[in-house]
Design a protein around this nucleic acid. Structure first.
Lengths: 234, 234, 234, 234
DNA sequence: AATGAATGAGCCTTCATTCAT
DNA sequence: GATGAATGAAGGCTCATTCAT
């Protein structure tokens, strides 16, 4: 009797809702973290039903995992750690590029610094997704950085020192991401966000290059005895 | 609503329960953060009733505020930023001491690295308590560090550069605190916790001293053009 | 926080649960008042989960507001203040009808006197809903009554006197609603509820008509001085 | 060894604390009612410990019962229903005095209208204390009023009519007490509180005297048939 | 394939009450 | 005789999840 109606939700709608959920979830997870984000908030922003999360991603954790993977993929595609032609650059230039890329990833304003915020939260409150993230995304970057440092510091420096230097470089960068609330309160005139990304990148590169250039020859400065006359590096 | 006023005659029982609650709360807040911590968990660990929170601290936020103040007080008393005799040290020695002190504060194993964990969470998810914390605790430390750097870098460097250098130093330190979950996964053989605190302190100091010593004279390395022959610091 | 918007396509289940909640809530609010009613009690009677309140009405206050509006609507539809053909009645007949209608509203047994009980509680412990109730429901009734009284008492009596007479009429009616617990204890054989509603309506009408007919000419009886011979109305 | 110190809490303190609790409780119960009043609030205002309630009155209900009895005693002593010399007054004068006394009791400003508020709440939410209150205080007043009415209306009127008339008189009075929140909203310029107590007393007396004088002769006005031409009392 | 409706567990808070001095 | 401290039972509310179309 009744004429056969076309399905009310065309095949495109499936992907569309899915994408809307992912986009909204990225925003909300960046703002609130995994646990404090609510699927109701996400669905409201995406204009979808609460049950849609369960339908498309199984549960909240599944959605989060998907968001994390997507963010990681997008950010690495947009800011590749090893851009074309990188091999022809000097190690110093490669380090400068690495610093700049890393800063862009975590502070990039065109993605509302979502990636940095999500990563920060993942490090403070690790979820099951972190293991995969380390294996697939973070470790390759770390090894890329250590290769650059090895090229600068020479083959004699022990691997442990290379690692420490790598962490010194990355630590400087992530500071602007992890400690923004404090930075904003301490130095209101220094918006440690993307608006001065170039300035920050230049400083970190300069500071790191200076350090690396003289790291091998510097004295150890271990436990300055208060009685010694002058153990400071001459 | 309002936290009760301290009793005029505090018997031992009062202080005992209060201390138990504070200790348990410090652990739980360090593990879970303010929002995800539950007072039930805290009270269970302290062997107290949930209503005890309301009685002693007014509410969850009052307890948290007290924990924060207590942690800040204890850690600054135990690891003072300006220890006795600091004035007779060279700036380099003072920086070494500062780095070591800061690392101890956030990683000190005898307080289960609670302070660092709580501070990390406060930076990621700031509560109302952060403003007071910045004013009373963080800003003095920041100014102490910048004074040391100023003594090393000379009066000609602009204040903004001093601030950036300070953040580079602190960023290196906090990295071991903020990113422990990743460090543990990347380098399982490098427990970035207190067991190698000395090693970490020595590295950060060495890296920073080397950087600062040559920061003023280093080239800017701004945006290495890929075509230029050799913009790397000679 | 905000009550959810009504669904676009309300299936029967929606309305069914919603109505069950409203009915149970009307009973419980009538019995206990807003503050002392518990949503757990309401939901138990309605066979629903506590979270249903949040889903359908936002929160307890939203449910209460809805119950109040519903009660007001139903009772005014069932017992209209200005029934069809009221214009052709004499003022005295209109007053008689008003008294009867008002008594029915607050004591009507087929709604378990819920409306009167709820209104009583709202007057003793006003909530935010009272303002709206006065504006939309009570004031129109009050003005309707005062118009009737004006027609009976003539244009010379000041408005303040009209208001006082109106309160005398309404006060008599509400007494059976507000003081039932005392009436039951004082006169157990006079169940001041709906079973003798006609008797009560007739008395109040008779008493009021007699009063109004001679109110204008009565002496003021102000502060009868104990020495005066006979200040009673001759 | 140690000199015998006098007890820190002299015998007077016992009664003093007790009185302070009673006074504070009267205020709070009048404001919030029995259930919504908190013993913490009462004790705070009385400057006593929460356990003092239990100590002096057993529990919250015991305190309430005591407050009720005290209020009833005080108010009846201050505004006696049958003042000295009442017998020499005419019934009309006696009714005027009764109305005035009753209004004073419930609205009297020098006791912050506490009694009326508490009684109102007791009628809406009766507690176990109501039975005693009716027996010891309310019933005598009711019989006093009915005696006055009987003297005015003559011996032929049935007792049920006397009772109804009594309730009409009392209903008018209590309206100003029970419905104050609505009155304030309807007629903001008519503060139905004690400031116009005389005005209210005069109106109620006048209205009631007029009604009673003609109550016996008035037609019944039962169910005005809408078809009848003019059933209004001629 | 997709959703409106409903659920149960858990949260923080508040309260009258009791315990141990 | 009197109190500071502690308790257990609710209470309102929110959440991720599941059910029944």
């Amino acid at each position: 009797m009744a004429a056969r109606r076309p399905p009310e939700t065309p095949p495109e709608a499936h992907a569309a809702t899915r994408q809307a959920l992912l986009a909204a979830a990225a925003d909300v997870f960046a703002e609130c973290g995994f646990r404090n984000a609510t699927i109701r908030d996400i669905c409201r922003r995406a204009g979808a039903n609460v049950a849609a999360i369960n339908y498309h991603f199984g549960d909240k954790a599944g959605l989060y995992s998907e968001v994390l993977a997507e963010q990681s993929r997008v950010v690495r595609e947009r800011f590749p750690a090893r851009p074309a032609g990188a091999e022809s650059l000097s190690p110093e230039q490669q380090l400068a590029a690495f610093v700049r890329t890393f800063l862009q990833r975590v502070l990039s304003p065109d993605m509302h610094a979502r990636h940095g915020r999500i990563m920060t939260r993942e490090m403070v409150d690790p979820t099951d997704a972190l293991d995969r993230l380390v294996k697939e995304a973070i470790r390759p970057d770390a090894e890329r950085l250590m290769a650059i440092l090895r090229a600068m510091l020479g083959p004699d420096l022990p691997a442990s020192a290379i690692r420490l230097c790598g962490m010194s470089v990355v630590g400087q960068i992530l500071f602007y991401c992890h400690c923004q609330p404090v930075i904003r309160r301490l130095f209101p005139d220094l918006p440690a966000d993307a608006s001065r990304l170039d300035e920050l990148a230049e400083h970190v590169t300069r500071f790191s290059l200076a350090a690396l250039k003289h790291y091998g020859t510097a004295p150890s400065a271990r436990r300055p005895s208060r009685k010694s006359s002058s153990p400071n590096p001459a």
